[in-house]
């Protein structure tokens, strides 16, 4: 079983080239535009306005696990079955691949934030570099906690995207889509419900209690991912 799960994981990672390409192009253009061009300009005495705000290039890497979470249930499932994989092993292998990518992306973004964004901003010659890990207050307890909070949040987003994608085409998928739209559109204008929505987003993103945020994201991610078991059991090949 471990061998099979490991094979599913490797196949998922190996065959996500489209996601790597898309994110690679976006990252490259952002790094060139935000960092390299501005460095060249600064070297020639042309400085950006310090009032400008740019998004840290590393944040664009967040797209990678999200894209892969879309591709695995849509493009990889049938091919994996055609190679003789079992549904249970597919589920675990998909989870492993997504966790690996989430951790890798969190490391990449954290490293880019501390090694490039902060030093560049500190010179005073460059615009403000906004990275979600700082905007959301995740780095207020240091780099390691910032990395962990980012990882937990990305796992939640990835599991939600994977599960929603896997459920599309079935009534429960459409029901979930409608429920999400309904919650946002109904909750937002009604004050008590809006408070509940704010409380939820505060818990999974903004709270200063890092342990609560990490625990909430991981528990929710596990719960949402567990829904894939009955979804997969009903998926036809």
């Amino acid at each position: 079983m471990v061998k099979s799960i490991s094979a599913v994981t490797k196949l998922n990672l190996k065959n996500s080239k489209l996601a790597y390409l898309i994110v690679g192009i976006i990252l490259a253009t952002q790094i060139i535009q935000n960092n390299i061009v501005k460095l060249i300009m600064a070297a020639n005495g042309v400085y950006s306005s310090v009032d400008d705000v740019i998004i840290g290039a590393g944040a664009y890497a967040w797209l990678l696990p999200v894209l892969v979470a879309v591709f695995i249930p849509t493009l990889h499932f049938r091919k994996m079955m055609n190679l003789g994989a079992k549904r249970g092993n597919f589920l675990w292998g998909a989870l492993c691949a997504e966790v690996i990518l989430v951790v890798a992306v969190a490391i990449f973004n954290t490293a880019l934030f501390y090694l490039v964004d902060i030093p560049m901003y500190a010179t005073g010659y460059f615009p403000i570099v906004a990275n979600p890990i700082e905007l959301f207050g995740w780095t207020s307890h240091g780099m390691v906690i910032g990395f962990l909070r980012q990882t937990a949040f990305l796992l939640l987003v990835t599991s939600a995207v994977h599960t929603l994608t896997a459920a599309q085409g079935k009534w429960y998928g459409f029901a979930a889509d409608i429920a999400i739209v309904a919650i946002i559109s109904v909750f937002t204008p009604i004050a008590p419900l809006r408070e509940a929505l704010l409380w939820f987003f505060n818990l999974i993103i903004f709270t200063s209690a890092a342990s609560w945020q990490i625990a909430a994201c991981l528990i929710l991610a596990a719960g949402i991912y567990a829904l894939n078991k009955p979804i997969l059991a009903r998926k036809i090949i």
Binding site: K3, S4, S6, L11, K14, H76, L83, G84, A85, K86
Partner: peptide, 28 residues
Amino acid sequence: SFIESGSTQFNMRVGALIDAASSLQENF
């Protein structure tokens, strides 16, 4: 063991696909 005819596979080398099937299937 069943694979539908005309089924799509990952666009990998044939040898790699056979290796992958070998890893995915216990009795391969």
